[in-house]
């Protein structure tokens, strides 16, 4: 009787998931209370919307060159025109339209890059945490190895070798970022396996894979979603950097980094060519960081407690 009591108490620690609807509604309420998180999400959704419906909302074709209205400043400047709100570049292409289309590259890289990184990372992390022993040692060594090269340098080198295409960039980010997800997953698997309730579940006869899926995965959702948000933000940030170095998508594709490369040549005479794409990068990264901070507060109870 006493033993039974202990087991049940142990299991009461387990995260018993309420229905999805209830959880989403609760999250929604919490988000409404935290204005910065809300603003972050709204800006981010705007960027996603721009990326998905770029063809519909961009005022003009982003690659349309119109030399008669080239090098126009933003609309509120003295010689600006409201037909090109954020001005035009040296070839007369509409900067606003190019920024809207540029969101496509950023969101694609961020979304698919994280998807690849998370898939590989979770798999490796689970293997390491589950089998422990030499599997864990080997995987941890590889993770440490990759993490010991400064990320930016690593990405630059790989991008330089593989050449510029959207697919390559996604793959590079996906693979180089996987160790971070693997480390998180591994840590969480080990933590949960060693905590009381995995043992308790084991003692009442739950199988190992069952424990992994019933107890480890639900506990991983929060930290993973949070990490994914921050990593997506980082990938968008780094992609613009790669673009800027001429190592991401081809120069013909409108991307924020590419726009900055063109802008750099005319920096002192037509600064608007550089200012607005930069704002797009910073604002997108900002929105995801604000939203990510909120997510971390809400989804990661260990962090929340310390605040």
């Amino acid at each position: 009787m006493a033993d039974e009591q202990i087991v049940i108490e142990g299991l009461s620690d387990v995260y018993v998931a309420p229905t999805l609807g209830v959880r989403l509604r609760r999250l929604g309420r919490l988000l409404w209370r935290d204005k910065t998180g809300m603003i972050g999400l709204l800006i981010f959704l705007t960027v996603v919307f721009a990326a998905v419906f770029a063809d519909l909302i961009a005022p003009v074709d982003p690659n349309l060159q119109d030399l008669r209205s080239a090098k126009l400043p933003e609309a509120w400047a003295d010689s600006g025109s409201w037909s090109h709100v954020l001005g035009t570049d040296d070839l007369g292409r509409d900067i606003l339209s190019r920024i809207i289309h540029g969101a496509r590259v950023s969101i694609t890289v961020g979304f698919f890059g994280v998807l690849v990184a998370m898939s590989i990372g979770m798999l490796l992390g689970m293997l390491a945490g589950y089998f422990r022993g030499w599997v864990d040692s080997a995987l941890s060594a590889v993770i440490n190895l990759i993490l010991s090269v400064p990320y930016l340098v690593f990405v630059i080198v790989i991008a330089a070798i593989f050449g510029r295409s959207l697919f390559n960039v996604v793959l590079i980010f996906g693979i180089t970022d996987a160790p971070i997800f693997a480390r998180l997953t591994r840590g969480e698997v080990l933590r949960i396996r060693e905590s009381g309730y995995a043992e308790a579940a084991e003692s009442i006869g739950a199988s190992q894979p069952r424990i992994l899926f019933r107890h480890v995965l639900p506990n991983l959702v929060g930290p993973l979603v949070t990490l994914a948000t921050f990593e997506m933000s980082a990938m968008i940030f780094y992609e613009s950097g790669l673009s800027f170095l001429g190592l991401s998508v081809p120069p013909s594709v409108p991307s924020w980094g590419n726009m900055l490369t063109f802008g750099r040549q005319y920096l002192t005479v037509y600064p608007w060519m550089s200012i607005y794409p930069g704002i797009a990068i910073a604002l997108t990264a900002l929105s995801m960081n604000l939203f990510g901070d909120w997510l971390r507060d809400v989804l990661d109870p260990r962090v929340r407690r310390s605040r």
Binding site: G241, P271, I275, G278, A282, L283
Partner: peptide, 12 residues
Amino acid sequence: GQVTPSFWLIML
């Protein structure tokens, strides 16, 4: 600080 691209900032 974390969201400002350094290559953009130096240009500004």
